Amino acid sequence: MRQPRIAVVGSLNMDLVVTAPRMPQAGETLTGESIHTISGGKGANQAVACARLGAQVDMIGAVGDDAFGRSLLSELEANGVSTEAVARLSNTPTGIASILHTAEDNSIVIVPGANGCVTASLVEAAAERIRQADVLLVQLEIPLDAVEASLRIARANWVRTILNPAPARSLPDSILYLADYFTPNETEFAFFREASGLAPASDSDWEQALAGWWQRYGHQVILTRGREGASTLIGDQPVTVAAPAVQAVDTTGAGDCLNGAFGFGLASGWSLEQALAFAVKSASLSVTRFGAQAGMPTLREVEEA
């Protein structure tokens, strides 16, 4: 089988993960259980997800010329991701994510650092890596001009694009019309429907919401639904891929795993439904291990699950 090639334009963060027994209330001080520094960032997480499944992956982004940046690049390279298109910036710190992790959930505060310096010109300098890809993955932890430049390069060269709109922020139609696949979770999708002036839909009305979005923007929505799996429309038929029941240990990178695995499936030439089923299964496996990147499964692990 030909090795699929994927370009990922996005963020690289060092995750500072504090584990606590529960979320603190406003003004409350809790004693935590542990702290870990873990390689992260939605872009880097998705790049690792693709590479561990067997894709040839080019990461495009930026880190600071500091210990965190060197560690992030080393981790990507150890997982088989090309970092030649990752800029090393002096006088700018590597981005970080401060994550409070409990048994039930997590909350995250991001400081962009070098990720905020990912410009359209930086992306254009790496345009050949996008042109040669089967699929482009991009998220919203970098400036929007870089997001749009990435999508435009891909569209001009018939490269399929996956826009993972996280964290949710207002997007101009010029970006939304460039995506082939749009992969929000339910909270993000509600945000974008409201921002786009579309009628809100209840949780049970997701079919109507996806159809309305398709009519407006003409791209496929992959609605990620946590324990419920993921839903989409194929033609005018609603399709939901249920998530297998697992014992969750860390949900931090589940969405990134799903996006990476979905991109891997599309880049491998699979059907939409086959790629989506593979992505849901991969994401379910990822939450059974601690750490966003460390939890990304290999192709063999998904096949054997």
Rank of each mutant, 00 (worst) to 15 (best):
G229P: 04
P184W: 02
G212K: 01
E207G: 07
A261K: 03
T102I: 12
S204A: 13
P112S: 13
R225H: 00
V135F: 08
A62R: 06
A245P: 01
K42L: 09
R300P: 05
S286I: 06
D203M: 03
M23S: 13
V147E: 02
L140T: 03
L210V: 02
L144S: 14
D66N: 00
H101G: 12
K281W: 05
A47N: 07
G255V: 01
S71N: 08
A242L: 08
Y177Q: 15
G226C: 00
I35P: 05
D256T: 09
Y177T: 15
W214R: 11
A87C: 08
V8L: 11
E148Y: 11
P93N: 13
V302D: 04
P167C: 08
N79Y: 06
P93M: 13
T92Y: 05
R193S: 09
L72C: 11
Q247D: 12
L30R: 14
L276K: 03
S39M: 12
D250Y: 08
W270A: 04
L53I: 10
A26G: 14
V135Q: 07
A114W: 10
K281S: 07
L16S: 11
S202Y: 08
G263E: 00
T183S: 05
G80S: 02
L73T: 03
N45A: 08
L140G: 02
E188R: 07
Y181I: 11
V9L: 14
D173Q: 13
D134Y: 09
A166T: 06
A267R: 00
S150T: 13
V147S: 06
F191S: 01
I153Y: 05
L176H: 09
R52E: 03
R225K: 06
R160D: 12
W270R: 01
E141L: 06
L272T: 04
S107Y: 12
S202Q: 13
L53V: 04
S204M: 04
E33P: 14
Q215A: 12
E301Y: 08
I162G: 01
I162F: 03
E301A: 01
I162K: 00
Q3F: 13
S174R: 09
E84Q: 14
G253H: 03
H101D: 11
S282F: 04
V48G: 04
A292Q: 05
L176R: 07
V109Y: 07
Q25A: 15
A55S: 06
L72V: 02
D250H: 07
A242P: 05
R129M: 11
D203P: 08
A51V: 07
F264H: 11
G54E: 05
L72G: 04
L233E: 14
A168D: 05
R129S: 14
V135M: 10
V57Y: 02
N106Q: 14
A245R: 00
T92A: 10
Q46K: 09
T252G: 00
Q3D: 13
